[in-house]
């Protein structure tokens, strides 16, 4: 119920329109969705455009050092969004597990993930280099499909550092699913994943 309302609200506020580069059935298979990160609403937006069945098994990956701090943020991220919280500086925290292990466990249980491989929200509209986590997931599960999603204009709805949103129209461009190649190196895979996302950038972005 909460999820339904949240989805409706997100769609209403962002007026998101969804475009497939090549339409495929996105509804049920376990997949890793990854996207550019410019706003706190990124995950909500991706969540809201997924079909119900897929949404039920899709969990965001969020930074524990941000979303796990404070009662409200923690409640929202864990109880409502069912996020997998990972610590960006896990080595410095006693008893904190390796994020990759946590993610692999989640994949093992059959859930889909939404990840932001840039690691943090980018302020300019350039896509940062990817952190290596996405590669480790692909390496451990070579059959796993990765789906790039480009989110356009959302940083204007809720920019970093603001807490009031404005109802600017956004869009999401969904690319084609792909897998890791046999013997693909870490840097090759990361470059390919990043390029597959950059390919989705429209010629004229709404982010003028």
């Amino acid at each position: 119920m909460t999820a339904k309302i949240l989805v409706l609200l997100t769609r209403l506020i962002t007026g998101v329109s969804v475009h497939f580069v090549n339409r495929f059935d996105i509804s049920n298979k376990q997949r890793i969705f990854y996207s550019n990160h410019s706003s706190h609403l990124d995950f909500l937006l991706i969540w809201s455009i997924l079909p119900d069945e897929q949404r039920k098994l899709t969990r965001p990956v969020a930074a524990k050092d941000y979303w796990g701090v404070g009662k409200i943020k923690k409640f929202f991220s864990t109880k409502i969004l069912n996020a997998v919280l990972v610590h960006r500086k896990w080595r410095d925290v006693l008893g904190e597990r390796n994020p990759i292990e946590k993610l692999l466990d989640t994949i093992k249980s059959g859930d889909s993930l939404v990840i932001f491989p840039e690691g943090t929200r980018s302020l300019d509209f350039k896509l940062k280099n990817f952190k290596s986590g996405i590669y480790h997931l692909a390496e451990s599960y070579p059959e796993l499909e990765f789906v790039p999603i480009y989110i356009d204009n959302l940083s204007r709805v809720l920019p970093k550092g603001e807490f009031l949103f404005i109802p600017i129209l956004t869009r999401a461009v969904i690319g084609e699913p792909f897998r890791i190649h046999e013997n693909e190196t870490k840097s090759d895979f990361l470059t390919r994943a990043r390029n597959n996302l950059i390919k989705l950038y429209p010629k004229e972005s709404l982010n003028v």
Partner: peptide
Amino acid sequence: REFITITP
């Protein structure tokens, strides 16, 4: 909303 969306 449409106006502001297309305006930088």
